[in-house]
């Protein structure tokens, strides 16, 4: 099942996503590329998906960690209860 060369669109999309995070194996990449040769929709998705990753990289976004957010929530709750 896992090593099928011809895959469904759903499976292709899943592998395309994984590839964006560097978590797709060689075979997974190969199989979605074969799929994209005959599936225009998935090919379009792959192109856009790649661009999205690039956009995220160039935006240089930051995100607060769960701990930092928990600390903020705590302080906010404290302020709310004191006022």
């Amino acid at each position: 099942m896992k090593n099928k060369l011809f895959i469904s669109c759903e499976e292709a999309a899943h592998r395309i996503d994984k590839a964006q995070y560097g978590e797709a194996s060689f075979f997974e990449k190969l199989s979605y590329k074969i799929h994209n040769v005959y599936c225009k929709l998935c090919h379009g998705y792959a192109v856009k998906n790649k661009k999205l990753t690039q956009l995220f990289k160039s935006a240089n976004l930051y995100s607060l960690t769960a701990q930092q957010k928990a600390k903020m929530k705590e302080q906010l709750a404290d302020t709310a209860s004191n006022s």
């Binding site: 930051y62 607060l64 957010k69 709750a77």
Partner: peptide, 24 residues
């Protein structure tokens, strides 16, 4: 609903601030 503030806006505000003060 202030309990949602941190989840909804913290990252947005943080990104806004960090590009202006350059210190996390």
């Amino acid at each position: 609903d202030t309990t949602q503030w941190v989840d909804r806006y913290a990252d947005y505000l943080f990104n806004y601030a960090i590009t202006r003060v350059n210190d996390s």
